[in-house]
Design a protein around this nucleic acid. Sequence first.
DNA 1: TAACCGGGTTACGTTCACGTAACCGGGGGT
DNA 2: ACCCCCGGTTACGTGAACGTAACCCGGTTA
Lengths: 139, 139
Amino acid sequence: MTIEGRMASIHEPRMHSMCGHDPQEAEMFRSILSRIGDKWSVMLVGMLHEGPLRFTELKQMTSGISAKMLAHTLRQLERDGLVEREIFAEIPPRVVYRSTPLGKSLAVPIMAVAEWASAHQAEIAGNRDRYDAVPDSGA
Amino acid sequence: MTIEGRMASIHEPRMHSMCGHDPQEAEMFRSILSRIGDKWSVMLVGMLHEGPLRFTELKQMTSGISAKMLAHTLRQLERDGLVEREIFAEIPPRVVYRSTPLGKSLAVPIMAVAEWASAHQAEIAGNRDRYDAVPDSGA
DNA sequence: TAACCGGGTTACGTTCACGTAACCGGGGGT
DNA sequence: ACCCCCGGTTACGTGAACGTAACCCGGTTA
């Protein structure tokens, strides 16, 4: 390993940890990232992070989501153990969703990405515009 | 705001920052998250983080990727300014891809998510198995 | 009786991510 | 002459993600 390589390994994260490895771990890793990349999961985790909410409350707060996607996304989150579903056997019955400790722990790195995205969104938008404006790239 | 609410707002990230806002910013945010959630981007950013690589080198290192998806993903990354493409006008011509400073800065929060995923993957896998084993959920 | 709400489910269609396979153009190896 | 390498592009097909609209059941309201 070169001097530069050694210095880099001290100051830089070892990104390679998420590529090689055994294929099963890579698949797992991918599926977690996919959840972060999907349209509603991060938003829902964010809302539930601040307190439990009912299905209809989530639907109203999350402008644009359909009942189908809300139910589906909540099932996925529940399957992963990021969210809990509680049914109150009352009349009328009531359902609340709440973030689990695992879900809350995910909020931390998610926020890091969110802050990066927020900090660089203008730069990325500019890059995109510039790239799309170059004739031999965009068209 | 309640006492609990105030204390929470001190200790916990304000996830709400990524939901409301204006729709254009939300769209931008979503598109960045999608890139993180897609199948190859994170892996490629990780590889290029450690040094520039040629198309064929990336293809060989990234087991399973097709030339099409590699080219496509690299174009997207290049469009966003996360990766640079350099063509050496030699004979034979040579193309190298390298991470930009923006790309390297993304590696930091990505690593935080990667470490979270690595730390909790067994727990999530267990949650998934348990959920899928319950007859009224999985089937 | 009719209409509405809560918490969904089902059917259906579209778009997009991703995969496979074939092709291409210039150069080099044998 | 022939095929391979590099760096892709193009055509085509599949399944997943996402959207809309309709429906459902038990209970309450008017």
